[in-house]
């Protein structure tokens, strides 16, 4: 490497040389990047949540289906646990358990989505989007459902790659990242649920 008196051509020629920065930073960078992304998403949810408080205060209609919402909350929390177990399994190379837990998580996510569809159907009659509460309701549910769907897609991808044997105790960043994202989606619901149903 030279620092002075090199022409661009020489420099480019030299650059085919052997030096490459050591890549040991990458796992750390991945984690930091994911966390920053999650924080960033949190703020997005924060914007919508504050919009809900601003426009409707503590107003909430009688017709809310409390039982179904509680059930869905439990379903989602359980899926978070199974996602965690999937991650731990692959860390220890328990591939079969890993596949089982991922499938279980996806099923839970699908149940959740089914429940949300029922809720939306009911809501369309009881408090349609034109009403103040309906406005906040559909926005928050919609935003969250979008994240659940992307989460499910990512989980499916991880499942397919996992079945092909892409992950193992040495290399499970893909699983870890998706599972962390899934935890975030669940956590978001844990905040949205009381905002829409309890207060």
């Amino acid at each position: 490497m030279t620092t002075l008196d090199t022409t661009p051509e020489e420099a480019t020629a030299e650059s085919h040389g052997e030096y490459h920065q050591d890549m040991s930073f990458q796992p750390k960078a991945n984690r930091i990047g994911l966390w920053l992304f999650i924080v960033s998403e949190t703020f997005l949810f924060g914007a919508f949540l504050s919009a809900r408080w601003f426009s409707t205060g503590t107003l909430k209609p009688e017709e809310l289906n409390q039982a179904l919402a509680l059930l869905l909350t439990i379903v989602l929390l359980v899926s978070s646990i199974s996602a965690y177990l999937a991650e731990t399994s692959i860390k220890y190379d328990h591939r079969r358990n890993f596949v089982l837990f991922i499938v279980f998580t996806i099923v839970m996510g699908l149940i959740f989505m089914g429940g949300v569809t029922i809720e939306i159907k009911e809501a369309l009659h009881a408090y349609p989007p034109e009403t103040p509460y309906g406005t906040s309701y559909f926005m928050l549910i919609g935003l969250h459902a979008f994240h659940v769907i992307t989460g499910l897609l990512a989980l499916t991808m991880v499942l397919i790659l996992g079945l092909k044997g892409h992950y193992g105790s040495k290399q499970y960043w893909g699983v870890e990242g998706v599972v962390k994202y899934w935890h975030f989606v669940d956590l978001a619901w844990v905040i949205i649920y009381p905002t829409l149903y309890l207060f």
Binding site: M1, T2, T3, T6, T7, P8, E10, A11, T12, E14, S15, H16, G17, Y19, H20, Q21
Partner: peptide, 12 residues
């Protein structure tokens, strides 16, 4: 480093 910089910026 040279102007313009080489492909990977630094050769060492």
């Amino acid at each position: 480093i040279p102007s313009p910089p080489p492909e990977h910026n630094f050769t060492s």
